[in-house]
Nucleic acid binder design. Sequence first.
DNA 1: TGCCAGGCCCTCTTTAGGGCCTT
Length: 283
Amino acid sequence: MSFIFFRNSRHLRNCLVIGANVRLLGIYSDKFISSQCIVSPLSTYCEVARRLPETITRFSLKEPKISYQYSDTIHLYQDKKHGGGTIDQTATILVLDLGTTGVNSKKDQITEIAIRDLKGGPDSTFHTLVNPELPLKNHKTNQILTKSNVPRYFCLMLLKWVKSRRMDSKLVLLVAHNGHCFDFPFLVRAFEQNGNQIPNDWLLLDSLPFARQLRHPDGTKLEKGNHKLNDLVTFCNVVPEGSAHKAMADVNALCFVLQHMTFVLKLTITDLIKRSFTPSRYL
DNA sequence: TGCCAGGCCCTCTTTAGGGCCTT
């Protein structure tokens, strides 16, 4: 089997995952570039990482992936003088991050969802890939993930998990960075598509406005363009866990950034609830 | 590298434009 194509032979070669001996002939910048690669069925992450170029990582998941793991408790700022309370007393606070195929919530799809309950403990994180027919692509790490045995729907599982994390009838507060313009519209639409609805007593909170309130020690604002989650990780001296731009790693980063912001800005849980909004905003 | 969507913020100027932020 052979291919003749323009511009980028490496790209096509990297798209092949089925066992076959493949000879590639590429034309690029008026020069002929030929290469040969032997592509075998992929079994483990390590094996694939060893075979493929460093800039591309591709692997197959063999296990159904709904991951529930232990995490430590994240304590937010409490001001008892002004009515602040502990997490246990006021709300179940869940930090969220989504992976998607793009930034258009009307056209693109969710490919990954990660959530962490700040209360911590066993099974305090929820992580899964979704929509197995869609490639998971991160434009910054150039990672492509071929998914198998991945659930198409996650809403019922998420509802069940949140119910298990919820204390009594306390509020549920979902927090995401730039969630108002990105994560929350995607999440609301995903629930709609599955014939579900986000419960009315789930509140949504965008952490980006708080990031814009942060100040340097000399009182000056953070420079424009420095409110990205990665920038906040540096500003807040947070030690990131895991690789950047992966959903659960970003969730963990935002947990500590949120913690830092509540202390610096003296934001109580009550303040966070006051700044939150309901899912009906997107209906 | 820039585009994609869209709400917010900032600047310069008012009802406009550009940039940020998320994948």
